[in-house]
């Protein structure tokens, strides 16, 4: 197993520092929002974790397609890593959203397009992990999970659109803002700055985690190969 490359070490330290800075910015720099008060601060990490989930979702889809074309094992490792990270961060997003929604919408959960779609993504990924667990041959496991990820990554946007045909109450913070979206608010420049800093931070965190997760999977592959040699 190769030791950590200096770039990864630097990246790890950088993402920890950025994470602390993002927390500090949320609590010390970002101004209080007028109607929602402190609970609005949940929003910054909610958006940021959702962004990581989306990045993971797209990375997994792309890695899956590339695997199906090239049949190179490293894309399977990347796909697996992206799925797992996306799963964890979407879970955090959903919980944060619930915590925010309880005081603002007066409910933990609504069947709104974004919430429901996030839940569907979680289910698709859980199904994918179960599928992987049920297959011993690594090559077949990679093929099946790539096909399933492809099917999932096409179906999820359609699911989003179809659920959107119902009326949505999720606030649209960026872009058009209508009064009917309860809990929407206008962002002041410091709030925007905080949000973009959080997005940047979590992008770096995503890259770092992805790298670490791929290395973990490489270790797994090494063990598999060693076992094959012995047997």
């Amino acid at each position: 197993m190769k030791p950590q490359s200096p770039t990864l070490k630097i990246l790890t330290i950088l993402s920890s520092l950025l994470f602390l800075a993002a927390l500090a910015m949320v609590f010390l720099y970002a101004p209080l929002e007028e109607t929602m008060n402190y609970v609005q601060k949940v929003f910054y990490f909610h958006i940021a974790t959702a962004w990581v989930g989306m990045l993971g979702f797209m990375a997994a889809a792309v890695a899956g397609v590339v695997y199906l074309v090239r049949h190179d094992r490293k894309w399977d490792l990347l796909e697996m890593a992206a799925i797992e990270i996306s799963l964890v961060f979407f879970l955090i997003t959903i919980i944060l959203g619930s915590i925010w929604a309880r005081p603002v919408w007066n409910t933990w959960w609504t069947w709104d397009p974004r919430l429901t779609t996030a839940a569907i993504v979680e289910l698709v990924y859980l199904a994918c992990l179960l599928l992987r667990q049920g297959i011993d041959d690594p090559e077949r496991r990679a093929r099946f999970s790539a096909v399933y990820t492809l099917v999932g990554s096409l179906s999820v946007p359609i699911a989003f659109l179809s659920i959107r045909l119902f009326r949505t109450i999720h606030p649209v913070v960026i872009g058009t803002n209508t009064a009917s979206n309860l809990g929407a608010f206008n962002m002041t420049p410091p709030m925007l700055a905080t949000m973009f800093f959080c997005l940047f931070t979590f992008s770096v965190v995503f890259a770092t985690l992805l790298w670490h997760r791929v290395r973990l999977e490489q270790l797994n592959v090494a063990i598999e190969e060693r076992q094959m040699e012995i047997l």
Partner: peptide, 14 residues
């Protein structure tokens, strides 16, 4: 069912 239901949601909903 575990594989199919999450990806069949759009078709069932529609």
């Amino acid at each position: 069912p575990i594989l199919l239901f999450p990806v069949a949601i759009p078709v069932l909903l529609a």
